[in-house]
Amino acid sequence: MSLSIKLCHPLDNNTASAFVLELDLMLSIKEHVVGVFGDSGAGKSTLLKHIAGIVQTRGKQIVYYQDDITALLPEHSPCCYQNQHGYLFSHLTVKQNLALVLRHGNYSDTVPFTFDEVIKWCNLLPLLEQNISTLSGGEIQRIAFARSLLSGKSLILLDEPFSALDWQTREQMLRLLPWLKANYGIEFIIVSHSLRELSLVASYIVILKQGKVIKHGVSNEIITRYSQGHGQQAVTALRGKVIEHIEKYQLAKVLLDGENEQAVTVHANDMYQGNVLLSLNANKVSLSKTKPSLTSIVNLLKVTVRKIERQPSAALITLALNEQLILAEISLMSLDKLTLAIDEQVYAQFKVL
């Protein structure tokens, strides 16, 4: 494992909701983009600040690969912490803010990409000469992410980094993370209140509740099971590998993990390569007992019914595709019409992702 975390840190001691952030966790951040999920006040941000060296306390040990980084100050740590506020210098331009980290950062000589590449990825070219004080919260978050990349640090800790962005732009930024990891070896831990957001980017999930890890594991199982309730939209995170780009339509074919090889079609650009995660909302999935033909619905998967949960306003069906799970939310009328049975094979269909 590439990151070992041992913590025992009392939180909010002067309030009725006091608890202890207590962890003994080993994470393979070399293999996974790690997502941390939990309610407000669960200890997510404090965890990242401990890893980065911003918060110090007794009863703590952070080992990054073979190096004990417990006592390192933030400027000397190989970890870069970025929160949702950005904290840029408001009297400087965007370009001047980014130049500061290149000029004064302790790791700036290890940046594996160019300044211009980062500007392109974060779509900052039109903003370079503007003062920070004139920009929106979403623009500031994109600039802060560019600054994190230009820090040259190998592990970037992201605390709700794109919360001010519209969903389309947020999705574009999130998809950068696994691509940067695959192509440049940058490691990421990202905190979010949204399992839908984490389903796009995190292949391993840690769930915190009142300072304790209550679940952790690969994202398909954790997100699929935990998004059923807890105030979250039911969503699935599917693992796969890009096998073909259809440039004419700006689409790609993704072969889903598992022995029974099945592929789906997704919207993609030329940066969408290699192993990927697909986020599929349960209410976008329809079911059929027979194989549909002559339909505009592009994606069709043969799956097995594993669980049927009748809810007050809809039915939530858990489906198995090899070892991966998929959720489908259908109407109660459709459930009665289909008369589904456990272990029955059906077809799940959904539009281009």
Rank of each mutant, 00 (worst) to 15 (best):
K6D: 05
L11S: 00
N13V: 10
T15K: 11
L25E: 04
M26K: 10
L27V: 05
K30A: 10
E31S: 09
V36L: 12
F37L: 09
G41S: 05
K44G: 00
T46R: 01
T46V: 06
G53K: 02
R58Q: 10
R58A: 11
I62N: 04
D67Q: 15
I69K: 08
C80A: 13
C80M: 12
Q84S: 09
T93N: 07
Q96F: 02
V101I: 12
H104V: 14
D109P: 01
D109M: 11
T110E: 05
D116M: 12
E117Q: 15
I119T: 14
L124P: 10
L124E: 08
P126F: 09
T134Q: 14
I140Y: 00
S151Q: 11
L158M: 00
L158F: 02
D166I: 02
Q168H: 13
R170C: 02
M173W: 00
L177C: 05
R196P: 06
V201H: 04
I207W: 09
H216K: 13
V218N: 14
S227P: 01
Q228W: 05
G240C: 05
K241R: 14
E247F: 09
Q250C: 07
L255V: 02
L255F: 08
D257L: 12
A263M: 11
V264F: 06
V266K: 03
V276K: 10
L278T: 04
S279W: 00
L280I: 15
N281G: 05
S293E: 15
L294Y: 07
I297Q: 02
I297F: 00
V298E: 14
L300F: 00
L301M: 13
R306W: 03
S313G: 01
L316R: 11
L316H: 06
A320P: 01
A320N: 08
N322F: 03
N322H: 03
E329Y: 01
E329L: 06
S331D: 06
M333R: 13
L340F: 12
A341N: 15
I342W: 04
Q345K: 12
Q349E: 09
